[in-house]
Design a protein around this nucleic acid. Structure first.
Lengths: 345, 345
DNA sequence: CTGAAAGCGCTAACAC
DNA sequence: GTGTTAGCGCTTTCAG
C-alpha cells in the first residue's frame, strides 16, 4: 500500500519482439523507421506495438544511441523578470510549438548568472543534444565556448564581432529601424528623434543604426538621440531629455514599445499630442501596443516565430546539417496604427 | 570536419574509479551521497571527479535506477494563449525557480487538446518521474487517470468531487472571496454585487461561495450575481446587466482583475464613479491591477508561489512521502488600493 | 532484409 | 565500508 511499485505494466521492446515473432533488432528498426524492413514485418510489429501499448524507454534509447532527443532552453536573465516580459514568453511559446511537431523534448533552465556553472555541467553532461540561449543582454554570450562541445543557437545576435562564429537567429533590427523611421519621413515628419536602447545591447544598437540610415538617406538631422533601458520609465525620462533640448520634434522612434508608451506620458506632460504634434513608432508589437492610447504604430518582430526558427536551426545542427547559415534574420514588418499621421501642411 | 564526433572527452564513472583507485560502486556511492563511505575515500573520489571534470550521464543513471530526475509541466491550454496569460507565466516561473534548487529537470509539454494522446504516451513512457498539470479549465483533469501510473499534481482544484483523490494545490479562493467582500462590507457598502466566473470553473465557483459567505454573515442581499468568462469584455457586459436591474449598487466584487477593469468602463458609461459611488475589488492582483484607473483593490494569490508549491508537493510524492495532503491551499491576501473607499455617511 | 551478440554508463543487491 | 556481479532497455555492428 505504501510503496510505489515499479510499473510492471510497461512492456519492453523484447515483449513486442516476442509478440510479433521477430527479433528485438527488427522491432528497433521499425520503431526507428529504418527503411530496410519488409512492409509485412512492419505491419506485424506495429500491430504488436499497438496491442501491447508499447512506448520506448527514452533513457535506454538515449544510452544506447548516445542521443537524448532533448534540448535545453537557457534563460540567463535575472529569473525574477523572465516571464513578465512578453519577449521571453513568446519565444518560449514559439519553441514549444515547433518542438511539439518533433520528437524533441524541451528542458527549461533558468540560469541565474551565479548558477551558470551548474548549467554548464548540465549541458556538458550529455543531458541534451543541444541548447537554445535567449537573453536581452549580450554578456550572456558567455555560453559561446560551450558551442564547441554541444550545438548552440542564440536568440539575438552577439554583440561582440569576435563571437561571430556562433549560430544565432535574430530579428532584422536594422531593417526594422529603417522602415519605422522611413514611415515617419514619408508622413512628412522632418525632426525625428530616437529613444534608443542601452549601447551594449545589439537590438538597441541595430535599431539605432536603422534609424540613422533612414535619416541620412533623407538628409535629415540624426542627432536627436537619447538612450533608455527598454523600460517605460526610462522612455519617459529620455523623452523629457529630448524635449529639454529645445529643438522642436515632430517624430519619434522608440527602440521598443514599452519606452514608446513611457514617452507618451512625457509628451502628454509637455502638452504635446500624439500623433498630431509628434508621431510615434515603437518596436516589438508587444501586447501593449494595440491597447495604448493612441494605439501604437510599431515594428512587428514576431518573437514567436523567432523561437520556432531557433528550434528549427538547432535541430538541423544536431542532425549534422552543414548548410545552416550562422545568422538567420527574421523579417521585421511595420504595423501602422494611430500613433502616426501625416503632418498637416 | 563534417561529422559530429562523439564527445570522447566525457569521462565515465569508470575513469574516475581508476583515477581514485577504488571500484566503480564506490564512486557511484560518493556521487549519490551514500552515507556509508569513509571520509577519506570521499575526498579521494571527489578529487578525481574534479580533476577529470566528471559529470554523470543522466541516461545511464536513469536506466539503472529507474528514475529520470525529470518532471513534466503540462499546459493543456490552447497553445496560442498559454504564455500571454500572466497566470501561466508566473506558475512556470515559480516551478522553474523551485526546481533550480533541486536535481530535477523541467520538461515543458504544451499539449493541445488533440495531442493529449501523444502526451499520455510520453508520460507513460518513463520519461519523467512525475508531472504537473496546469489549466484554467476543469475539463483538463482528464489527466486524472494517469495519476495511477505516475505522480501527478494539479494546479487548481478539480471541479468534480469524484476526482477528489488527486493531488492539487490551489489558491484559497473561498477565503479570498470572503475577505474581498468583507472589505467592502467593512467600508460601509451594503449593496454588493458580484461578477462571477463561469459556473464550470472551480476558481469562479469558490470565489462566489466566499462572497456569499461574507454577505450572509452580514445579513446582506446575496442575489446580485452575474457571470462573466474572465475577460474584460465579459466584465463590462456583466456590469451592464447588473446596473440594468435597477437596484442601486455600491460595491462590486469581480472574480478576476480583468473583469473588474471591464466593469470599470461599464460603470463609467453609467456615470458612476469608482470608488465613490461603487467600490470595486478584483482578484488575482495581476499586473494590470496597480495600473488601472483607479488602481484596483484586489486579492493577491501569488501564482508564482503556487507553482513552487506544486513542484514541492510533486517531489515529495515522487520521494514516496505518504504524508502529503491531497489539497494544499495557499493563503490569499487582500491588497488595498484606490478602488475601494469608505462610504460617505 | 533479419538475427545474434555486444555493449551504452550507471546502480543495486549481494558478498567479503 | 568496499568490491563483484548483474543487469536496466535499447541500438548497432556484424554475420548470414
Amino acid at each position: 500500500m505504501s510503496q510505489r511499485i515499479p510499473t510492471s505494466t510497461a512492456p519492453t521492446l523484447e515483449a513486442v519482439a516476442a509478440r510479433a515473432g521477430v527479433s528485438r533488432a527488427t522491432v528497433s528498426r521499425v520503431v526507428n523507421n529504418s527503411p530496410k524492413v519488409t512492409d509485412e514485418v512492419v505491419a506485424l510489429v506495429n500491430a504488436a506495438i499497438d496491442e501491447l501499448g508499447y512506448v520506448p524507454n527514452r533513457a535506454a534509447r538515449s544510452l544506447a544511441s548516445r542521443r537524448t532527443q532533448a534540448i535545453a532552453l537557457i534563460l540567463p536573465e535575472s529569473a525574477a523578470k523572465v516571464f513578465d516580459d512578453p519577449f521571453f514568453s513568446n519565444i518560449v511559446q514559439g519553441i514549444a510549438l515547433h518542438l511539439a511537431d518533433t520528437e524533441y523534448t524541451l528542458s527549461l533552465l533558468i540560469a541565474s548568472e551565479t548558477a551558470s556553472d551548474k548549467t554548464r555541467r548540465y549541458l556538458r553532461g550529455g543531458n541534451v543534444d543541444g541548447a537554445l540561449v535567449v537573453s536581452h543582454h549580450s554578456g550572456d554570450h558567455s555560453y559561446t565556448r560551450l558551442g564547441a562541445s554541444i550545438p548552440l543557437v542564440f536568440g539575438g545576435r552577439p554583440l561582440n564581432p569576435s563571437e561571430t562564429d556562433s549560430y544565432f537567429v535574430d530579428a532584422d533590427n536594422v531593417e526594422g529601424g529603417r522602415v519605422a523611421t522611413q514611415h515617419l519621413i514619408d508622413a512628412g515628419r522632418t525632426s525625428i528623434a530616437i529613444i534608443s536602447g542601452p549601447g551594449d545591447m545589439p537590438a538597441g544598437v541595430d535599431r539605432l543604426a536603422g534609424w540613422r540610415t533612414a535619416l541620412r538617406g533623407a538628409r535629415l538631422d540624426d542627432s536627436l538621440v537619447e538612450h533608455g533601458d527598454f523600460s517605460p520609465q526610462s522612455g519617459a525620462e529620455a523623452m523629457r531629455r529630448l524635449l529639454a533640448r529645445g529643438v522642436p520634434i515632430d517624430g519619434l522612434f522608440a527602440a521598443n514599445d514599452q519606452m514608446a508608451v513611457g514617452a507618451y506620458s512625457a509628451l502628454h506632460e509637455a502638452g504635446l499630442s500624439v500623433p498630431h504634434d509628434v508621431s510615434v513608432v515603437g518596436f516589438d508589437n508587444d501586447k501593449y501596443a494595440p491597447t495604448a492610447t493612441p494605439p501604437l504604430t510599431t515594428v512587428n518582430q514576431s518573437t514567436e516565430r523567432m523561437g520556432a526558427k531557433m528550434a528549427e536551426v538547432l535541430i538541423r545542427l544536431i542532425d549534422g546539417d552543414e548548410s545552416v547559415p550562422r545568422a538567420t534574420r527574421l523579417p521585421a514588418e511595420l504595423v501602422v496604427r494611430a500613433s502616426t499621421s501625416r503632418r498637416a501642411e
